[in-house]
Design a protein around this nucleic acid. Sequence first.
RNA 1: GCCGAUGUGGCGAAAUGGCAGACGCAACGGACUUAAAAUCCGUUUUCGCGAAAGCGGAGUGCGGGUUCGAGUCCCGCCAUCGGCACCA
Length: 859
Amino acid sequence: MSEKRKPYPYDQIEPKWQALWNQEETFRAPNPGQSGFDPKKPKYFVLDMFPYPSGDGLHVGHPEGYTATDIIARFKRLKGFNVLHPMGWDAFGLPAEQYAIKTGQHPAVTTERNVERFKKQLQRIGFSYDWSREVNTTDPGYFKWTQWIFLKIYNSWFNPATHKAEPISTYTGNDPDSVRLAYVAEAPVNWCPELGTVLANEEVIDGKSEVGGFPVIRKPMRQWMLRITAYAERLIKELEGLDWPEGIKLLQTNWIGKSDGARVEFSILDSGFSISVFTTRPDTLFGATYMVLSPEHPLVDSITTREHADAVAAYRAEISGKSDLDRTDLAKDKTGIFTGAFAINPVNQEKIPIWIADYVLMGYGTGAIMAVPAHDERDWEFAKKFGLPIRFVVGPVENEDACFSGQGTSINSGIIDGLPTDEAKKTITAWLEERGLGQKTVNYKLRDWLFSRQRYWGEPFPVIWKSGQHSTLPETELPLAPPPLEDFKPTESGEPPLARAADWIRYSDAATRETNTMPQWAGSCWYYLRYCDPQNPDRFASEEAERYWMTGAVKIENRDSKIQNPGGVDLYVGGTEHAVLHLLYARFWHKVLYDLGYVSTVEPFQKLVNQGMILGTDNQKMSKSRGNVINPDDIITDYGADSLRLYEMFMGPLEQVKPWSMSGVEGVHRFLARVWRLVMEENQEGNWEISSLLADVPPTSKQQKVIHATIKKVTQDIEALAFNTAISQMMVFTNEFTNVEARPVSALRTLLILLNPFAPHLTEELWSLLSEKFAGFEGQIVAQTWQAWDDTLLIEDEIEIPVQINGKVRDRVTIKKDLSQEDTTAQALALPKIQEATAGKTVRKIIVVPGKLVNVVVG
RNA sequence: GCCGAUGUGGCGAAAUGGCAGACGCAACGGACUUAAAAUCCGUUUUCGCGAAAGCGGAGUGCGGGUUCGAGUCCCGCCAUCGGCACCA
């Protein structure tokens, strides 16, 4: 009894309803063909970005997006949809592995423990997930299919004629390995000698390891690559029809980085070689005064003259020894060295020197450029530093001391003189093509996806090696689990940790297993598909289930008709941090599966929404070191899950970054307590009982208006994901019914249904309490139907409108709603204040906006 | 440097080109109470005048513009946050 009395007994009702939902599988979503499936209802697939179950547990950022999707899921169910709302675990990953290296505890053990904790935390918030569909990327039953998809990727190629992935058997060339969508290449990786491991790009911050801050160097290693570049064009183009934030589409488009230009062949003087360069400005070809190769360019050794060989070798050694950090730091200061060789400019036969410099990247274009210092900032800087000639070929030249990279008219350029830039590009490119000296080309910044990691805690590749040749395991040998190990560090020689499992590696006398593992992205590339049919042992998801949840089609139809209807996940909510990587990788895999006929839609996610980050109460990013982390468990203990949910949604627009406020939590908590007290009151003994003010009376017409305005606003706001204003409106509703002599039960019935998606526990409880005394509360609230509003009830007979003089409000007038413009004007002008203001002045114009205002313009 | 988002009271915010500040927090005042908490009622952009009801001016980062009318549309800046960063 000493405990402080709670404003309402959330601590009792929340666990009660959670247990009941769990027990009765209230939110189980049957698949077509299963009992309880209703084919007449439309489908709705609402997806969260599944979490990595870290050791820290949930933070308040997780429930933000999860609450938003839960409200949508519950709303759609009330609206009569079959709703797929699942949750799972992206459980492979580096933190578990590093913890294992430190403590020797197997990652599977810590992962299981963390998953358990995360799940408990999520269940305490009352999310309406169909837990029978839970997936875990580290389950053999799951990663079997991750590996299976890899096999499909490995066994296909991108046919440039059809712009589609096709089985490798349709490839007629003589080297299928050169076109597979999964291939092996020597590629530089982020090697951290201190940690003895390779790091993903995301784990390298400013050239140092995210963990520990140790230097990271680039080291070439044999790597698996996925040919995502083959899809560059489609990954840009097929974004078009998606309902995604424009900013995210742009981010992906820029990441893929398409540029139109030309490849131009330069022959090398006194040698049999020729070097091709990529340029977006072939119109400036006459201004090329030198050429630059990347230090890693394969022809550097062949063309370097004897007297420059030592200096070039020294420069190349210096560059390769630099860490990423050094290279970034020196980005502004150009370095380079002359090779002694010369190239011939194909348009004017001019002899130009060939340099190497690290501002030219091997990974883009051809790794070589023609330098046009007059019209390219970087070339300008380099030419200035090394005293190379500068020649203007795009006019008008206004300033000889500055580079001009814009468009203009070609000058000093032979056949293209006088042409505007666009024309000049076309003309010179055609001229080059006719002579076999160049070609119109499209280039992308996007690189192929480095898909292997030297890690333990990931999916092993279903690949074996025999005499230096790779081949794949048969599907029947999937899943291939990682071997049991006790030491998870890479070997001393820098080989992946799987190399320690000698027995596991030996596949046969002649063949060994691949020891790299897949990156964490692999499992998250397709998890939304597994949710459709998570226990299926024979396919990643049955065709029927995949088709139903992705397109809504119950029967299998002509596949081409699906292309018309974009389909896919109906709503996907998650943080912006995945704007490029996860969302690009998943789209890529999905397209491969689509091309090969395994899925029904071109794109996986039809609508995407990014929730904004939640900052600490100090307006700073939450972090352990700042000590400003808010733990959702504490909020639930002190205010209840419904308050946590409601506050997360009431803070502000979903997409916006916003700081946490404890008194804000108390505010919504008070609101929920007010709703509780609309229904319940305390008796003499201090027990809660149904309020004596409740009565089966019709609402007054004013109340009727509030009821219908609230149904309308809440419905429209939920559909627009504007949860904060939906809640405001329900507060208005509650205020309206707080001080009344008799409270119409029907009004509360409506409020409870509207509030249910937001505060499911409180509304279930009040619903069930009301059913003891009033009719209309049969069954659970989750089984009810969302109400419709009546617009005719919202129309006011009389409205008050402002009357302005020259745009400033001078008075107000109350008029009948359908009053004619003439009569409105007359009434407005008759107002004493308006009379006074217009006296002695000319009324020049009167603007009447029906039902809105009158504006009198006087001179 | 480039790209994107944002900028409104003491704070979180709201406003199809039409009464700026709904709703909530905080603060202040009142009711209830022996008292406090809780609850309920009220005030609260700011400046000036007024005892008060009220009256008047200013006001949505800054400077311009379009419009009868701009937080909202257009042009040019500034600031904060996020992303990319020698991509030829």
